[in-house]
């Protein structure tokens, strides 16, 4: 079974960076890491291939520079190889432009299953999996919290507002997985060493066969007209518990007349 996993390399969320006021894109001069949300898809893919007894996990990713450190993390976890679309013109791409690029790269791999996170930790649009599925003419099951493969069918528990649905879907299909569904493995030393020699195919947007006009800022057909600091909450009362802090909480709730 061949599983393709979409992964995104993002600035470390602990140091999220800022928007460049001139270009209105994320300053990416910091080192990029594997989005934690995607580590669940990578782990899930590795487990499903293990269960199937044969096959491999292939990564697809895109980036405006030729950064690969996040991909190496996923390769060190056990993915066999990666396709990286690396092109300056990708800067400013929205979800639809992103999906067009990833879908083209995925199609070339002819996978049985495409996995992704439900949303990235920096852009969190959450529409890319459905867009990829639509571009490829495939069924999709988003927000999966459990996946089992039974012959040519994916059996998925899909999160809902109230609980979950059991969903069955013929392969090939696109499935997005929620955080926490599996415990992503830590790359072993052996894995890290092996990852250095795993194939990462780097392609430009044109080499991939996508029109550069469909990606980046131009392709997004959106304009940011304002960037401003969000209103800040007024500073509150902070006290140290000396054994009676609960009394202050009760008094506060009394003041609010909610008791």
């Amino acid at each position: 079974m061949k599983v393709v996993v979409c992964v995104k390399q993002i600035p470390d969320p602990a140091d999220p960076g800022e928007l460049d006021p001139d270009t209105k894109t994320l300053k990416r001069d910091v080192k990029l890491i594997l989005d934690e949300s995607d580590s669940y898809g990578v782990e899930m893919a590795l487990q499903l291939v293990d269960d199937a007894g044969d096959g491999e996990v292939h990564l697809v990713s895109m980036v405006p520079n030729n950064e690969v450190s996040g991909l190496r993390t996923a390769l060190a976890m056990g993915a066999a190889g990666a396709t990286l679309i690396s092109d300056e013109c990708l800067s400013g791409s929205d979800a639809l432009g992103t999906a067009k690029v990833l879908a083209k790269a995925i199609a070339a791999q002819e996978p049985d299953l495409v996995l992704s996170g439900t949303e990235s930790s920096d852009g969190y649009t959450g529409t890319v999996p459905a867009q990829i599925a639509e571009l490829l003419g495939l069924p999709s099951v988003t927000f999966a919290k459990e996946i089992a493969i039974d012959g040519g069918t994916a059996k998925v528990k899909r999160q809902t507002e109230a609980g979950y649905d059991d969903v069955e879907c013929p392969l090939p299909a696109v499935v997005s997985v929620t955080a926490g569904v599996v415990e992503p493995r830590y790359p072993s030393f052996k894995g890290i060493m092996a990852a250095k020699n795993k194939p990462v195919e780097e392609l430009t947007v044109e080499a991939l066969g996508v029109d550069p006009a469909e990606v980046g800022w131009a392709g997004s057909r959106q304009d940011i007209i304002d960037i401003a600091a969000a209103p800040v909450r007024e500073a509150g009362e902070i006290i140290e518990d000396e054994g009676d802090a609960h009394e202050r909480i009760v008094a506060f709730l009394d003041e609010l007349k909610v008791l």
């Binding site: 929205d94 979800a95 639809l96 999906a99 969190y124 649009t125 959450g126 529409t127 890319v128 999996p129 459905a130 867009q131 599925a133 639509e134 571009l135 999709s140 988003t142 997004s220 057909r221 959106q222």
Partner: peptide, 19 residues
């Protein structure tokens, strides 16, 4: 909502403003 928006955006080739 995200599924409908994603699929419709492809069908209409229309971008989505999210969040």
């Amino acid at each position: 909502g995200r599924d409908v928006a994603g699929r419709l955006s492809v069908k209409l080739d229309a971008p989505v403003i999210t969040n």
